[in-house]
Design a protein around this nucleic acid. Sequence first.
DNA 1: CTCTTTGCAAACTGTTTGCAATGCC
DNA 2: GGCATTGCAAACAGTTTGCAAAGAG
Lengths: 144, 144
Amino acid sequence: MKNVEEVVEKFQEQRYKITPQRREVFSILVNNENHPKAEEIYTELEARMPDVSLATVYNTLNILEELGMIDAVSIVGDDAVHYDPNTEPHDHLYCICCHRIVDIIRDRHDSNFYEKELLGFRIIKRHITYYGYCPDCQEGLEII
Amino acid sequence: MKNVEEVVEKFQEQRYKITPQRREVFSILVNNENHPKAEEIYTELEARMPDVSLATVYNTLNILEELGMIDAVSIVGDDAVHYDPNTEPHDHLYCICCHRIVDIIRDRHDSNFYEKELLGFRIIKRHITYYGYCPDCQEGLEII
DNA sequence: CTCTTTGCAAACTGTTTGCAATGCC
DNA sequence: GGCATTGCAAACAGTTTGCAAAGAG
């Protein structure tokens, strides 16, 4: 998701209508590196459009995912789905302490290429998540 | 989790009591390669002990996870937590179609070793999941 | 005999659904 | 104007919690 207009076009191609609510969700996601959950997107959206509903956020996210404009990210120990508007192959660092998710782009060999067949499975995509402590949270731990 | 007695000892070390319910959950998990969810463990348990409660399953799983005897596994598109009694480093193959999770042990270089520091994060563990179609489900797709 | 654990039901969180009213195209 | 989309509330799935009764050590 590079810019709002790109997403608008993709929606129109598929005969999905462009509402002010949807356009605003697009603009919250474009260039967003925070891997927000639906609830967080809703909070930001509500500040701009007081009467929106959380269901509209879910509806929009589900279409975006179906169209391949965002990726869903699952984290062990966090039951909400996080959304990533960067659909280029890359990995994630997750801080067990402050729960932030950070993108990490490894060299081409690691991130872009992986076996397309393993144990007879035909592989479509790969998710790599590293669990640990981010720099800020390590400082807090150093006291120990 | 190699055998029930090993788990019993670990529980006793930590002053957790051994109940018939817990012992039965242990035996369901030992050598289980199906990555079951709580609900699935409950179903199997119920067949052996008709009056158990799902809450007891969750209680036991949470202690097992805290003691490091099982790992939790999260899958995009599946909201339930799956449990893996194999805590040796390994990766997972997930079938988008039939939802089965299969262990895959890569060579030592891939599975056991990874950077312990990335972008300033201190890394504790790594999860790799490959999403795709298992051999059985590919057969069904071949018609297309 | 004490204190943990159990079963049950209710609470809770994240997400989906049903539906009348609204509003894109 | 027709049909998708909205907001709201209720429904749903997975998990946790509160509590009286049961039971392990």
